[in-house]
């Protein structure tokens, strides 16, 4: 029986050796720190240049008066663009519309998406096919989807909606003209519910089975199990879906561009569409930039606050132990 110490594994041995030479270890440390940072640098620099610089430039432009069609009109004007934006009734309407469209679409898509996820989280005949059908609205090119709804669904004469609702007294209703915001919201909910569904489904499928078993053994009913156990577990996934969904839906542009062009009047003009009109129709860089900054601030307050909150949840799942 030998009592000698077993030889150290090679990396440990090298670590012990390195400890014997403190000077070289420190130099090695500085070098390896840079070796660690180097692979990150190209992506990080690229992202800073392409995503951060334009926002700084937008802030810069928002303090200037500049019409692209008038040469030499590019002058410093302080906060005038902001004053002009806020005194423009269209801008205020756009602000209200943005909040209305985003809030209702996010809430409805979250409800529908979560419901779909719960329905899909059961074993039943053809589940894979049903999931495939359900995610399709999210995959269809949004512009194509908008085109499709505008023509074949909402059309007053030959649209499906008019046909389906005709037994209930609908006759050649100008759906988009009479219900512009619900028309846009319905289209958004149709597109984004599958997105919420996919995220919540991921949450449901990661739920530990032993906890569910324990709940059943303790005599909890299905409803109790869902509200007390499952909902607590998928809460962070729902939160993530709401966060990402809001960020995308607040930027809704294609649907409005395709279906209503911001109308009738300014009934569906949201901030992205307002900004687009300011810059690409009125060539008014200053006011466009000022409204861009306002969108930016609004989104950031909501998103960064929410992100900090969600961060802790995500981090625990991400950290390598």
């Amino acid at each position: 029986m030998s009592t000698s110490v077993a030889p150290l594994p090679a990396p440990a041995q090298r670590a012990v050796d390195a400890l014997g030479r403190p000077g070289s270890a420190r130099r090695e440390g500085a070098r390896s720190r840079w070796a660690r940072r180097l692979p990150l640098m190209p992506a990080l620099i690229y992202m800073i240049v392409v995503t951060q610089v334009p926002f700084l430039a937008t802030i810069w432009y928002s303090f200037r008066r500049w019409n692209l069609l008038i040469p030499g009109s590019n002058k410093f004007s302080g906060l005038e663009s902001y004053r002009l934006a806020f005194s423009d009734p269209t801008f205020v309407t756009a602000l209200v519309n943005t909040i209305e469209i985003t809030a209702s679409a996010v809430i409805l898509a979250t409800l529908v998406g979560t419901g779909l996820a719960v329905l899909l989280n059961r074993r039943f005949f053809g589940r894979a096919v049903v999931r495939t059908l359900l995610i399709t609205p999210f995959l269809v090119m949004p512009v194509a989807g908008a085109l499709l709804w505008k023509t074949t669904v909402y059309d007053p004469l030959y649209g499906l909606l008019d046909f389906v609702l005709s037994p209930f007294g609908a006759h050649h209703v100008n759906w988009i003209g009479r219900f512009p915001i619900p028309a846009i919201v319905t289209l958004s909910v149709w597109q984004w519910s599958p997105f919420v569904m996919l995220i919540v489904l991921a949450g449901l499928q990661s739920e530990p089975l032993d906890v569910l078993e324990a709940a059943k053994v303790d005599g909890a009913s299905t409803v109790q199990t869902f509200t007390r156990v499952t909902l607590a577990h998928i809460r962070r996934y729902i939160f993530l879906a709401v966060l990402l969904g809001s960020v995308y839906i607040v930027q809704t542009f294609g649907k409005i561009y395709m279906v209503t062009q911001g109308g009738p009047g300014t009934a569906t003009t949201n901030l992205p569409f307002y900004l687009y009109e300011q810059v690409f129709n009125a060539y008014n860089v200053g006011v466009g930039a000022a409204s861009g900054v306002i969108v930016l601030i609004g989104t950031e307050i909501v998103a960064l606050g929410a992100l900090r909150f969600a961060w802790g949840l995500l981090e625990t799942a991400q950290a390598r132990t």
Binding site: T51, P54, F55, A57, T58, Y61, V247, V250, Q251, F253, L271, P272, L275, Y276, V279, V285, G288, A289, G292, V293, V295, L296, T299, E300, A303, L304, L307
Partner: peptide, 9 residues
């Protein structure tokens, strides 16, 4: 989380 519309100009 940045809105792309604010960068387009």
């Amino acid at each position: 989380m940045l809105p792309v519309v604010a960068a387009i100009i």
